[in-house]
Amino acid sequence: MMLPRTECGSSGHVVATRGVMLPSPDDRCGLFHAVRELDRFNPEDDPYGEHDFGALAFKDVRYFRKIDYYDLDLRYASPDPADPAFTVRVMTIMQTGEY
């Protein structure tokens, strides 16, 4: 489910799975805040140092967050992920058991 830009202060494209949408709105906003604050990356989660994947625990539940880089039409991979003129970033958040 693509979340509205205003939910929990999200400022970009966020896709959330059913396991993320089931908790209460307050818990969901707490999870989104924890995802925004995620700044710990380890070699298992981030072998190339791109910081586009991360794992975290929130209220005793494990979650993944993954950022993908699409073209402006959101159909294909971006031709230049580093250039926002050609790229739309989409973050997916899911419970680890949904992978």
Rank of each mutant, 00 (worst) to 15 (best):
A16Q: 02
T92M: 10
P81E: 05
D68W: 00
D60C: 03
G49N: 13
R18Y: 12
C8K: 09
R5I: 11
V35Q: 05
Y70D: 06
D73P: 00
D73E: 15
L74I: 13
H13I: 08
G9H: 10
L22T: 10
Y48N: 05
D83Y: 05
M2E: 14
K66I: 08
P47L: 03
G12C: 07
H51P: 00
P47I: 07
T87I: 03
R89K: 15
K59M: 12
G54Q: 09
P43Y: 12
M1V: 15
L72Q: 09
A85S: 13
R89E: 13
I67K: 01
R18N: 10
R65Q: 14
H51Y: 09
Q95M: 09
L56I: 14
P79C: 11
L38T: 10
V14N: 04
Y70A: 02
F41E: 07
A85F: 01
E50S: 06
A34F: 01
L56H: 14
V35M: 02
V14D: 00
Y76S: 14
Y48W: 02
P47Q: 07
P81A: 04
R75I: 12
G19I: 06
M21N: 06
P81W: 04
F32D: 02
D45C: 08
P81I: 04
R5P: 08
Q95H: 13
S10T: 13
L56E: 11
H51S: 04
D83C: 06
G12L: 03
H33D: 13
G97K: 10
S24Y: 01
P25C: 06
E98R: 10
R5A: 11
M91Y: 03
Y69I: 01
L3T: 06
M2H: 11
D60G: 13
R40I: 14
G49Y: 03
H33C: 04
H33A: 13
Y76R: 15
M1H: 13
M1D: 15
D83R: 08
D83K: 07
P81V: 05
I67Y: 00
Y70P: 01
L31P: 04
V88A: 08
R18F: 11
E37N: 03
V35F: 01
T87C: 04
G9A: 09
D27M: 07
M1P: 15
S11I: 01
H33P: 00
T6R: 10
G9V: 06
R75K: 15
G30N: 08
V14H: 03
F86V: 03
L38I: 00
S24D: 11
M2R: 14
M1F: 12
P79G: 05
P23M: 06
P4Q: 05
F41P: 05
G19L: 07
E98P: 04
Q95A: 13
D83T: 08
M1G: 04
V61F: 00
V61P: 00
R28W: 09
Y70G: 07
